[in-house]
């Protein structure tokens, strides 16, 4: 299993060049059964990453490009009257897939956003009183433009909490960029990828993630991180218990990727930024360091009093 995992990791990294860290985080997010938010400028490979993930894990893949005139029905689906049977039946929207790439989610209206996010959270869709479960596994990889760009509807904090991680890809390093330019279209490369794992494997892996051992010392560390984020005064509001659970889940997945059956503080620290930063709003005039880095440096790994 871990061999297959390694192989899938390197497959993804072979397509998304020079982004090992982010690829690893994205895979960890999938293993932890969390949704992923990628925040970046257009054209840095968000779509490629999502597509590659889908290929490697042999997931059914769907993509929605969000626009400002989109309605919830465009994603969830509509009830259509079937004159032959004289009844309504549900025409499934693009959300009924295993891995949904929700592109530029902050371009659409809050109404549509919340429709998607609620479906994400509940893993089911209710239309006209009929509830239909979404496929299992089900992941959303949403992308978002930097909030400073015009014409966007930033996701409210409560919605952001539904994403386990937020990562950004950034421009590739110069040599990687050269390779990328020389190597032809990445999307094509992605489409040519063979599936390394099957969706059932992913389900099994997520079960393994849940079994990863978390010692009392580590729980203590995570708890002190939460407490510090609330007490330090650097953030408008601290991390919620849900964030803490997410942090532990992500750290477990990270440990699995590392081939360990227990979590160490490094695992927590590795996922700390992606898991926490989109949930923490710094107060005005706060430290210039990223929230993750700030927490990491300020909270002792080992209890000191």
């Amino acid at each position: 299993m871990s061999k297959a995992l390694r192989q899938s990791l390197s497959s993804v990294a072979g397509v998304v060049l020079g982004k090992e860290e982010q690829v690893r985080l994205a895979v960890a997010c999938l293993l932890a059964r969390g949704h992923l938010l990628i925040e970046d400028l257009p054209g840095v490979g968000k779509t490629t990453l999502a597509q590659t993930l889908a290929r490697v894990f042999s997931l059914q893949y769907g993509r929605v490009q969000f626009t400002s005139d989109m309605l919830p029905a465009d994603i969830l689906g509509v009830s259509v009257y079937d004159p032959d049977n004289r009844e309504f039946h549900l025409k499934e929207g693009p959300i009924f897939t295993q891995l949904l790439l929700a592109d530029e989610i902050n371009r659409t209206t809050p109404k549509t956003q919340s429709a998607l996010l609620e479906a994400m959270e509940e893993r089911q869709v209710t239309l006209d009183g009929v509830t239909r479960p979404l496929p299992d596994p089900f992941f959303v990889v949403a992308t978002q433009n930097p909030v400073t760009q015009t014409g966007t509807f930033p996701l409210p904090e409560s919605q952001l909490d539904r994403f386990l991680m937020r990562i950004s890809l950034g421009y590739p390093a110069p040599e990687m960029e050269r390779e990328l330019l020389a190597g032809g279209d990445r999307r094509e490369a992605a489409e040519q990828l063979e599936g390394v794992l099957q969706p059932q494997d992913l389900v099994k892996l997520s079960r393994a993630v849940e079994k990863v051992h978390v010692s009392a010392d580590l729980v203590d560390y995570v708890q002190r991180i939460l407490e510090y984020s609330r007490a330090c005064g650097e953030f408008v509001s601290g991390l919620s218990p849900r964030a803490g659970l997410g942090l532990l889940r992500a750290a477990r997945a990270w440990a699995v990727l590392d081939g360990r059956d227990y979590v160490i503080p490094e695992d927590v620290q590795a996922v700390l930024g992606p898991v926490c930063e989109h949930r923490l709003q710094p107060v005005a005039g706060g430290s210039a360091l990223g929230a993750g880095q700030q927490l990491l440096e300020a909270v002792p790994v080992v209890r000191g009093s």
């Binding site: 909030v147 400073t148 760009q149 015009t150 966007t152 930033p154 005005a284």
Partner: peptide
């Protein structure tokens, strides 16, 4: 000239 999102 126009608007842009508020930055701190």
């Amino acid at each position: 000239r126009g608007l842009r999102a508020y930055v701190r």
